[in-house]
C-alpha cells in the first residue's frame, strides 16, 4: 500500500467512525448491520472470489456464529465481546471440517452440497434435543450491550463503534492474508488448479484452510449480527441468507476486498428502499441485479470503481502532459 492509500483508508475509517454521531439511532443500527454484512461478504469472497470454491450455504456459518454468541451469552452469561473469539473458533473448525469432504467436490457439486447445507440448516436448528440450548423454534433473545467505561454515548452508537473496530481488524487481517503466500496460493488454485499442485502447493490444505477462514469470517459476522439484532431464531437463517451473501459478492465485486463494502451497502439499503413497494420487491430486485451484473458488469461495483478511477487518473495525466 502506498502512503497515499494508507491516508485514504485512515480517512475513510475516521469518516465511518463519525457516522453514528450524524444520523439517527435507527440509521446507526442499519450501518452496524452493514458492517456485519461486510465482514460476512469478505468471508465468502475469500472462498468464492479468491479461491474459486462456490458456496451457496454460507448462511449456515453465519447462523452457527450467531447461535454460538447467543448461547454463550444466554446460557453462560458471557459478555458479548468475549463471544467473538469463540464464534470465530467454532466456525473455523466447522468450516475446516466441512471443507475436508468438500475438497473432493468441484464447482457445481460444491455448490450443490453447500446449497443443501443452507436449505436444511433451519430444520437442524429446530431439533428438539438441542432445544435446551437453541430455544427451538422460539430462538434466543439477548440483551443489548451498554457502552463501557461510562462513555457518554448510547448503546446503538457503541455497538456501531465496536462493530467498526472488529470490521477494521478483520479487513486488515484479510488484506494481509491475501497478499501473502497463502493468498497467492489460493488465487493460483482458483486459476490453475493442476498447475498449482504441480508447483508444490498443498492444494488440499490451502482449500480446507480457505474454507475454514472463510467460515470464521462469516461466523464472526453472525455473532455480531446476533448481538446487534438481539435475537436469533431458526427461520431467520434460511437459504435466502446464503443467497443474499452471494448477491452481495457478485454486486460488490468478486475477488475484491472493497467489494465486500459495496456489496454490504447494497444488500442492507436496497431492500430498505424496495420494501416500500412490496415485500417481494427486494428479492425481485436482487434477482434482476444478479442477472444484470453477470451479463454486463461481471467485475461488480468494485471493478467499475476501479475502472472509473483509472480513467480519471489517465485523464489527469493527459492534462498534465498537455499543459
Amino acid at each position: 500500500m502506498s502512503r497515499r492509500q494508507i491516508i485514504l483508508v485512515a480517512a475513510l475509517v475516521l469518516a465511518a467512525g463519525a457516522i453514528p454521531f450524524l444520523v439517527s439511532d435507527y440509521r446507526t443500527f442499519q450501518f452496524t448491520l452493514t458492517l456485519v454484512y461486510a465482514i460476512a461478504l469478505l468471508g465468502l469472497n475469500l472462498l468464492t472470489g479468491y479461491n474459486g470454491q462456490i458456496s451457496l450455504g454460507h448462511g449456515a456459518f453465519y447462523a452457527i456464529g450467531a447461535y454460538t454468541a447467543a448461547i454463550l451469552m444466554d446460557q453462560y452469561g458471557m459478555p458479548y465481546w468475549a463471544t467473538l473469539p469463540f464464534a470465530a473458533l467454532v466456525c473455523l473448525v466447522a468450516g475446516f471440517l466441512f471443507g475436508l469432504p468438500a475438497l473432493r467436490l468441484e464447482g457445481l457439486y460444491l455448490a450443490l452440497a453447500t446449497f443443501a447445507l443452507g436449505v436444511s440448516l433451519p430444520a437442524l436448528l429446530k431439533y428438539h434435543h438441542l432445544e435446551k440450548w437453541t430455544g427451538g423454534v422460539q430462538g434466543i433473545v439477548i440483551n443489548k450491550p451498554d457502552p463501557p467505561f461510562g462513555l457518554p454515548i448510547n448503546p446503538d452508537q457503541w455497538l456501531y463503534l465496536f462493530t467498526l473496530a472488529v470490521a477494521v481488524l478483520m479487513f486488515v487481517l484479510a488484506w494481509n492474508l491475501l497478499r501473502g503466500r497463502i493468498g497467492r496460493a489460493m488465487i493460483a488454485i482458483r486459476d490453475q488448479h493442476i498447475a498449482a499442485e504441480a508447483m508444490g502447493i498443498n492444494t488440499a490444505m490451502v482449500k480446507s484452510l480457505a474454507f475454514g477462514v472463510s467460515a470464521m469470517y462469516t461466523g464472526v459476522a453472525g455473532a455480531l449480527g446476533a448481538i446487534a439484532i438481539q435475537y436469533v431464531a431458526p427461520d431467520s437463517f434460511n437459504i435466502f441468507v446464503s443467497i443474499v451473501f452471494l448477491v452481495g459478492i457478485v454486486i460488490g465485486g468478486l475477488a475484491s476486498i472493497s467489494g465486500a463494502i459495496y456489496g454490504a451497502l447494497f444488500i442492507q439499503f436496497v431492500p430498505n428502499i424496495a420494501d416500500e413497494i412490496s415485500r417481494a420487491a427486494p428479492w425481485a430486485i436482487f434477482g434482476v441485479f444478479l442477472l444484470v451484473f453477470v451479463y454486463l458488469m461481471p467485475m461488480g461495483v468494485a471493478g467499475a470503481v476501479r475502472m472509473a478511477l483509472a480513467r480519471l487518473a489517465r485523464k489527469a495525466q493527459n492534462r498534465s502532459q498537455s499543459t
Binding site: 436482487f286 444478479l290 442477472l291
Partner: peptide
Amino acid sequence: LVIVVVFIALLV
C-alpha cells in the same frame, strides 16, 4: 460460478 449465479437469480 457465473452459471450458478444465473440459476440463483432465476430462483430468486
